[in-house]
Computed example of a mutant assay.
Amino acid sequence: MKSDIRVCASWREHHDRPVYTLTATCPACGGDAVNSAPAPYDPTDRYGEYRRALKRRARQ
């Protein structure tokens, strides 16, 4: 499932902050807009266990 909300792909170069849109192009600069959703969870991720352990250690 993909998000309908998109963000300007080159917002770091053209804008002070992220510009969000529902269209395929940025309304401010006319550049391409990309999906703003994070990557989906992958149960076959070989390093996921290590990343989660690091997060737990950082919280403590």
Rank of each mutant, 00 (worst) to 15 (best):
residue 1 M to Y: 08
residue 1 M to V: 09
residue 2 K to C: 08
residue 2 K to D: 13
residue 2 K to W: 10
residue 3 S to P: 03
residue 3 S to E: 05
residue 3 S to V: 01
residue 3 S to Y: 00
residue 3 S to W: 01
residue 4 D to Q: 08
residue 4 D to P: 05
residue 4 D to S: 09
residue 5 I to S: 02
residue 5 I to R: 00
residue 7 V to Q: 05
residue 8 C to T: 02
residue 8 C to Y: 00
residue 9 A to H: 08
residue 9 A to F: 05
residue 9 A to Y: 04
residue 10 S to M: 09
residue 10 S to E: 15
residue 10 S to R: 11
residue 10 S to F: 10
residue 11 W to P: 00
residue 11 W to D: 01
residue 11 W to Q: 03
residue 12 R to T: 12
residue 12 R to E: 15
residue 12 R to F: 06
residue 14 H to A: 07
residue 15 H to A: 03
residue 15 H to R: 05
residue 15 H to I: 01
residue 15 H to M: 04
residue 16 D to C: 04
residue 18 P to T: 02
residue 18 P to E: 00
residue 18 P to K: 00
residue 19 V to C: 03
residue 19 V to N: 02
residue 19 V to Y: 03
residue 20 Y to W: 10
residue 20 Y to M: 06
residue 20 Y to N: 04
residue 20 Y to A: 03
residue 20 Y to K: 05
residue 21 T to F: 00
residue 21 T to H: 01
residue 21 T to E: 00
residue 22 L to A: 06
residue 23 T to A: 10
residue 23 T to C: 03
residue 23 T to Y: 06
residue 23 T to N: 05
residue 24 A to R: 12
residue 24 A to P: 02
residue 25 T to M: 08
residue 26 C to D: 04
residue 27 P to H: 07
residue 28 A to C: 09
residue 28 A to I: 11
residue 29 C to Y: 02
residue 29 C to F: 02
residue 29 C to N: 03
residue 29 C to W: 02
residue 30 G to P: 02
residue 30 G to N: 05
residue 30 G to A: 06
residue 30 G to S: 04
residue 31 G to S: 07
residue 31 G to Y: 01
residue 32 D to W: 02
residue 32 D to M: 09
residue 34 V to E: 06
residue 34 V to D: 01
residue 34 V to C: 07
residue 34 V to T: 09
residue 37 A to Q: 08
residue 37 A to R: 03
residue 38 P to V: 00
residue 38 P to R: 02
residue 38 P to G: 01
residue 39 A to T: 09
residue 39 A to K: 12
residue 39 A to F: 06
residue 40 P to E: 12
residue 40 P to V: 08
residue 41 Y to E: 14
residue 41 Y to H: 13
residue 41 Y to T: 09
residue 42 D to C: 06
residue 42 D to R: 12
residue 42 D to T: 05
residue 43 P to F: 06
residue 43 P to C: 06
residue 44 T to D: 15
residue 44 T to R: 11
residue 45 D to G: 04
residue 45 D to S: 11
residue 45 D to W: 07
residue 46 R to F: 07
residue 46 R to G: 11
residue 48 G to T: 05
residue 48 G to A: 15
residue 48 G to D: 12
residue 49 E to V: 15
residue 49 E to F: 13
residue 49 E to P: 07
residue 50 Y to F: 13
residue 51 R to M: 07
residue 51 R to E: 13
residue 51 R to Y: 11
residue 51 R to G: 07
residue 52 R to W: 11
residue 52 R to A: 14
residue 52 R to H: 11
residue 52 R to C: 07
residue 53 A to V: 06
residue 53 A to M: 14
residue 53 A to R: 15
residue 54 L to P: 02
residue 55 K to M: 14
residue 55 K to W: 10
residue 55 K to E: 15
residue 56 R to N: 12
residue 56 R to D: 13
residue 57 R to G: 10
residue 58 A to R: 14
residue 58 A to Y: 10
residue 58 A to N: 08
residue 58 A to V: 07
residue 59 R to K: 13
residue 59 R to E: 15
residue 60 Q to C: 08
residue 60 Q to P: 08
residue 60 Q to S: 13
residue 60 Q to N: 13
